[in-house]
Design a binder for these strands. Structure first.
Lengths: 343, 343
DNA sequence: TAAAGTTAACAAATCGTTATATTCTGCTCA
DNA sequence: TGAGCAGAATATAACGATTTGTTAACTTTA
């Protein structure tokens, strides 16, 4: 084992193996154009020298980086310490999916106003881009359109939508709204309220509401109380419950547009000494880690982050290889816990 | 605005600006060797063409990638869907710190048995490496030693330790154990139990315990009940409480080695109708997101992930520039909530 | 005015690969 | 025997930037 101060190059190996440098390259890439014996010899020497192909040189020559860039757009209001747990979970699964496909993953947070739309693929840092975040800003839409027109390969997390060009992978929020509402109806609930955003801020919430609303209708129910001004925060959920209580009309079931909202709802109900689930059932949406630990634990709708990560990565890789790609809507699963009073 | 099918190179710009290609490079890098006027002209044209420096070419020439690799080592037993929330938070802050320093971040999960120790810096993918995870495996230690001997630039998350070579950034678990224990003593508690690992699995836990134990001693208290076989899971915490209850010796305060353990403790106590904090105070460690939402909310010890991320990145950058670097132990802060019965 | 100094730009070498074109060796077969 | 043809390895040309001499064009100074 020779100690080398300098990093070994393919020339060093060529020298030691007594072949040309191009043969080394071929041998290391398992080309059939170089015979078995020399191939083995070259590979053995490379291993001994702890040689690793220089990625920059290789990428430059191949015009391909085997790297994917993940761009995370955050709610601009949230501070550093509090990152949306759902997106963090996605980050985890995307990382794994990339590793599986032998791609590297570049991660970065982006402000919507930056010109991220040109940065990555144009500089050959990455072969394609995954966009992750709530895309409810016009600024975002125009930039996505620009990506599209540049011919950049990218995949977007979210619902398929004419306003957003490009391929999207998302979770079926409409069906999620349906499923959780059906579950409540199945438990014999007859009066309902939805607490959350009406969809002005994010299309995700609108779909959830629609699923809920249509399911009620198809079963012959109407919303008993409507509370539609809550953004997706704990305090908003709490406030909404307070005004429900003041109006005196408490339904048998409260459907929240997100788990965070549901947290606030649970808190306000506890403070008012309303028992969940006996007096009122409460359900959330997202299945964030916290929801398993609240008192009572929260029945909610889960988005399959593992599958989502795999779909995002695999779809992007297809796009990079110029194969046909399609939008995909994943099913949403109801996670039954205590807050709906299932048993 | 000219539409170009091919990506623009510095030669295209040189041609359009009527200067040589090297002048373009200089101009774009704001070199004083090219005069203001041509510099402006070149930059304007580059912008018009939507030109971006090819990172691979640039890196190859400069022998520097302006990229940091983050290697996450996970508890091998945990499954895909459940990633340690503390490490995810760290990932978030590291990502931000990198962006601030104008470095890209390559993220990957690693199995301890893979030969990650050579992969990144040797291939020039990254200028340095951040190691994040519980480093309580001998396999890990030998590979870290190898990194050190290779001259690879890296920084490790964890406590400074002779057994682990290289620079480390960590949180002062001893002081954290002290602080939380002092807080309980200040509240007038006189009998205590520690639930958690004795340090066999991770040095982090050992330090927490030592801080707790020494603080008791220095105030003239002894541990009333000892329960030291719990690994860091919710169920383990739950089991530990059950055997405490069976022995009939419930202390006034229970110090848990992690928030996850504390979750289990709270659950078991609730099931046994023991009121927290009135009958017994409970505190955790980590301040994971869940801990603010339990009932009662959990008093715990916080590790400053934002600072940690910045320190890891900045220390690594110093190491890359061959400046002197030092281990750093961050202070741990007590977060007072309901479970300790503070008011 | 000639010598020296300063500034601006250029041509060419370089980084470490991979891909293409080319040569070389030995073998078969007419 | 020599044309034809594989098989195996080599030589060489990109890839797109940065950097190192070097030159050309001005300014200044003696």
């Amino acid at each position: 084992m020779v100690f080398m101060k300098e990093k070994a190059t393919s020339f060093d190996i060529a020298h030691l193996a007594g072949v040309s440098q191009s043969t080394v390259s071929r041998a290391l890439n398992n080309s059939p154009l170089v015979n078995q014996e020399t191939r083995d010899r070259v590979q053995r020497i490379a291993k001994e020298l702890n040689y690793k192909v220089d990625k920059n040189a290789s990428n430059l020559r191949k015009q391909k980086s085997s790297t994917i860039a993940l761009l995370l757009f955050e709610d601009p209001t949230s501070d550093d310490s509090m990152i949306n747990p759902f997106f963090l979970a996605m980050l985890g699964s995307i990382t794994r999916a990339c590793a599986q496909a032998n791609y590297d993953l570049l991660v970065s947070f982006q402000n919507l106003e930056d010109d991220w739309h040109a940065e990555y693929e144009d500089s050959n840092k990455a072969d394609g881009i995954i966009l992750l975040g709530y895309g409810d800003y016009t600024d975002y839409q125009t930039k996505v359109a620009q990506l599209e027109s540049q011919g950049t390969h990218f995949v977007r997390w979210g619902a398929p939508d004419e306003a957003h060009p490009g391929v999207s992978i998302g979770c079926d929020n409409y069906q999620g709204g349906q499923s959780i509402t059906s579950h409540l109806i199945g438990l014999g609930k007859t009066s309902f309220a939805f607490i959350g955003d009406n969809g002005d801020h994010a299309p995700e919430f609108k779909a959830r509401f629609n699923g809920y609303y249509e399911t009620l209708r198809s079963h012959g129910f109407a919303e008993s109380c409507v509370q539609r001004n809550a953004i997706s925060t704990e305090d908003a959920g709490s406030e909404a419950v307070k005004s429900l209580l003041q109006s005196g009309e408490l339904p048998q079931a409260i459907v929240c547009a997100s788990d965070l909202i549901a947290m606030g709802v649970l808190r306000a109900l506890r403070q008012a000494n309303v028992n969940v689930p006996y007096d009122v059932a409460v359900v959330g949406y997202d299945n964030i880690a916290v929801s398993a630990y609240t008192t009572p634990s929260l029945t909610t709708v889960q988005q399959n982050t593992k599958l989502a990560g795999e779909l995002l990565v695999n779809t992007l890789l297809k796009a990079i290889n110029n194969e046909d790609v399609q939008d995909y809507l994943m099913p949403a699963d109801v996670i039954v816990r205590q807050s709906c009073g299932s048993e």
